[in-house]
């Protein structure tokens, strides 16, 4: 992985020094061994801080929205899952393609920080991560730790559709591994439940929600300038964390991102209350696929967008 880090630094430096971009959004080492943190490199000095390893969990595509107003050109490091968000943002005219330089990193799966924490000294220094077949070897100042990818990966990585980014201007690292079509096994299990059982399942989670908005704010599909949940007039949804208001929050969000949710799984990752939000969004993803015959949103720049275009010949019978 050292090679990828060095290549990212070289590419970022080239882009900044040639004024091809004003800013490169990448990763740097976080505050402990199991975290990388977003880095905003706008000078060649900051480029030296760039780091990349299987803890690069954040979908950096979301930050493009912060730089959409104006003319700045932005370089952004993306993995396969994140790259779908870029396509989708471009399709929605959130930011023009010409203003983005996509630095694509083919991904062999991300490690789950929570799972890895149990195996390492989090305060040790991470010297290097080496990929060895089915394992990642973490070389740390407190010794080497070998982690089996299947066991320590983030759950979403086990059913990754696009390990190789779907769009790219610069590709860093080797292309290996192929995507798998998602079989939506977890969704099918939930679909098999009775309405009462489904209700019990989701009520348990929704009642736990503290409405911190992390799922919304991390979501690249949540790009409304004014969000219904921020509005005081009309006051659509109460700030009370009652089960009723929380349910409105989550179901509204799930329906509202239908056709735009790229299944990056960030909502699921950031929820402090461990609400299985990806299960909810995958139900919508699965329905959109079945009803509109469209691929996972963002999978290609050309694919027809479900629920995102007006068509006078809409086949819907009642229209």
């Amino acid at each position: 992985m050292k090679k990828i880090t060095e290549a990212l630094k070289a590419e970022a430096r080239k882009l900044l020094e040639s004024n091809a971009v004003d800013l490169v959004i990448a990763y740097e080492q976080g505050s402990d061994l199991v975290h990388l943190t977003p880095l905003f490199a706008n000078t060649p000095e900051k480029v030296d801080r760039i780091s990349y390893n299987p803890f690069a969990v954040n979908n950096l595509g979301k930050y493009l929205l912060d730089y959409a107003p104006g003319e700045a050109k932005i370089g952004v490091v993306v993995k396969g899952c994140d790259s779908r968000a870029l396509n989708r943002l471009i399709q929605d005219n959130c930011i023009p393609r010409e203003r983005i330089v996509v630095i694509a990193v083919p991904c062999s799966g991300q490690l789950d920080p929570e799972k890895v924490l149990a195996k390492v000294d989090p305060r040790a220094e991470l010297i290097e991560v080496i990929e060895q077949g089915d394992n990642y070897v973490l070389k740390t100042s407190a010794g080497d730790v070998t982690l089996n990818k299947k066991e320590f990966s983030r759950e979403k990585c086990l059913t990754c559709e696009t390990p190789v980014p779907v769009l790219s201007d610069i590709t860093v690292g080797e292309v290996k591994g192929e995507g798998k079509a998602n079989d939506y096994a977890a969704v099918k299990q939930l679909e098999a439940l009775s309405p009462a059982e489904k209700n019990t399942f989701w009520e348990k989670y929704f009642s736990r929600c503290i409405r911190c908005n992390a799922c919304r704010n991390v979501c690249s599909a949540c790009n409304c300038r004014e969000c219904v949940f921020d509005m005081m007039e009309p006051y659509w949804v109460s700030k009370k964390t009652s089960l009723s208001d929380n349910t409105v929050f989550h179901l509204t969000r799930a329906m509202h991102v239908a056709g735009r949710c790229v299944d990056c799984g960030e909502c699921d990752r950031v929820c402090p209350m461990d609400i299985p939000l990806r299960k909810l969004n995958q139900k919508v993803l699965k329905d959109v696929k079945e009803l509109f015959g469209s691929p996972t949103p963002g999978s290609s720049a050309e694919a027809e967008i479900a629920l995102g275009r007006y068509n006078p010949d809409d086949p819907e019978e009642f229209m």
Partner: peptide
Amino acid sequence: KELSRKCLNCGVCTFICPTCHCFDVVDE
């Protein structure tokens, strides 16, 4: 300014914090 670039402005930190105490009052 540099630090804030990465913040998502979600409320995780403030809601789980034991000392954050800001509140809003609304009529329903």
